[in-house]
Design a protein around this nucleic acid. Structure first.
Length: 413
RNA sequence: GUGAAUGUAGCUCAGUUGGCAGAGCACCAGGUUGUGGCCCUGGGGGCCGAGGGUUCAAGCCCCUUCAUUCACCCCA
């Protein structure tokens, strides 16, 4: 009862689990590197206004899920709930965004949202994030989507589905919003859930995304964005789909796909899995033209995505623990000998030769030491017992075929 | 923020109507006086989440509290 426990929604990752994360990071570096993306690391703490402006005041993330506090200098700070705003802030601050020229960045690390934890949802969770800034072309959208697909493939995850949609732009989305609100007002909106009755005015796009069955039913005949988008958005999305088709990516069009962050424009996409509890999204992203400017940068467009690492970890096969090259067993149980010292120094020599392995700090029986070597799957067991110590030798037993030989310890110097 | 379930050994979990605290795995030792994996035997380990109540007697019943998990919601 006295021991301090970790706080709710935060997790400790011991090697067995941490290996999955390390592997994902390595694959991300590999795959994203092939696409010319460079790694960016930004702080976990930012000024609150960055997220309020960037993500949108009306979103759930900003409205009720942020870890916000006032620091000793009376500044309002927030633990980042997502990565894009911070990446853009950094890129703008460094002056590295030029409209018309692609800037390719990826980042990964912990994000924080104050929600009730459940399967696939932690208060501290980790995302892998990629942003392509400066390019308005539909090819940029496609490259980002293909890069995401390649990355997920590299993790060996099957049974994922890609969903695509276009949300329109600043020009045409207001038309669609108006049409939606009109549609909801015209029908019996008493049947909508409480949230949706509010949302139909404040943010009618979100009603499309509601999971309440009654709402789903009412939404079924709602006007679709495709009928209201401007020519520019239509052409853009058509070009995206055509190229994605040519690339051979399998996807479904989901006209109801609405993302929870306000900054998305035009192309949006989500990758989902049915195998991670009631959460389904393992990755999501889209185009966010206008966001860079909104955050005080040049008028440059952007596309990007985020993957939830905990969710990917649930779908991935766990990487095996690496097998040690050796276990160095001390079986000389006589009092006052130099066996352990000799063993530690020998182990050190082996490691300097590039081998991995552990060494006993206390002598034990041959049986228990060998059993331990077997348990940790050491390739070889080096044994220093009374005989070896007296003759200046070490016994090396191959744990695979059981063969063993004696070597002079001095030969390792 | 709302709802439900669960807290017993390091881990996964049994525990009957209230009647001596259990198993498997892991760890240690022995069976084999210096040789692992399989098998057998033994051993160490527990404030039964915490606090209060009922009772001759509580892991079990009642109340409170804390924690965890799942779901709603939201999203990666």
């Amino acid at each position: 009862m006295s021991a301090i426990q970790k706080i709710k929604g935060f997790a400790d990752l011991f090697p067995e689990d941490a290996r999955s994360f390390t592997h994902m990071e390595a694959q991300a570096r590999e795959v994203f590197g092939r696409f010319g993306f460079g790694e960016l690391r930004t702080p976990v703490l930012e000024r609150t206004e960055l997220f309020a402006k960037g993500i949108g005041e009306d979103t759930d993330v900003v409205g009720k899920e942020m870890y916000t506090f006032t620091d000793r200098g009376d500044r309002s700070l927030t633990l980042r709930p997502e990565a894009t705003a911070g990446v853009l802030r950094a890129a703008i601050e460094a002056g590295s965004i030029e409209p018309g020229r692609a800037t390719r960045l990826y980042t990964f690390g912990p994000m924080f949202r104050y929600e009730r934890p459940q399967k696939g949802r932690m208060r501290q969770f980790h995302q892998i994030n990629a942003e392509l800034l400066g390019s308005p072309e539909p090819q940029a959208d496609v490259e980002v989507i293909l890069m995401l697909e390649d990355f997920l493939k590299s993790l060996g995850i099957a049974e994922l589905s890609f969903e695509l949609n276009s949300l329109g732009c600043r020009e045409c989305r207001p038309d669609y919003r108006a049409a939606l609100t009109k549609y909801f007002e015209a029908l019996d909106h008493e049947k909508l859930c409480e949230d949706c009755r509010r949302r139909m005015h404040t943010n009618p796009l979100r009603v499309l995304d509601c999971k309440v069955p009654a709402c789903k039913a009412l939404v079924a005949d709602a006007p679709e964005i495709g009928q209201h988008t401007c020519a520019g958005c239509r052409d853009h999305f058509a070009a995206v789909l055509a190229l994605v088709d040519k690339a051979g990516l399998k996807y479904t069009l989901n006209p109801r796909l609405v993302r929870g962050l306000d900054y998305y424009q035009r192309t949006t996409f989500e990758v989902t899995s049915g195998a991670i509890g009631s959460q389904t999204a393992v990755a999501g992203g889209g185009r966010y033209d206008g966001l860079v400017k909104l955050l005080g940068g040049p008028d440059a467009p952007g596309v990007g995505f985020a993957c939830g690492m905990e969710r990917l970890a649930m779908l991935m096969e766990k990487p095996e623990a690496p097998r040690p090259d050796f276990f160095l067993a001390v079986t000389d149980t006589r009092e006052g000998t130099d066996a352990v010292n000799t063993a530690i120094l020998l182990a050190h020599k082996l490691r300097q030769r590039g081998m991995t392995g552990e060494c006993d700090y206390a002598p034990g029986s041959m049986k228990s030491r060998l059993r331990h070597a077997g348990r940790i799957k050491a390739k070889k067991c080096y044994i220093i017992g009374a005989d070896e110590l007296d003759s200046g030798q070490v016994t090396v037993k191959d744990m695979e075929d059981g063969e063993q030989l004696k070597l002079d310890i001095a030969a390792f110097d």
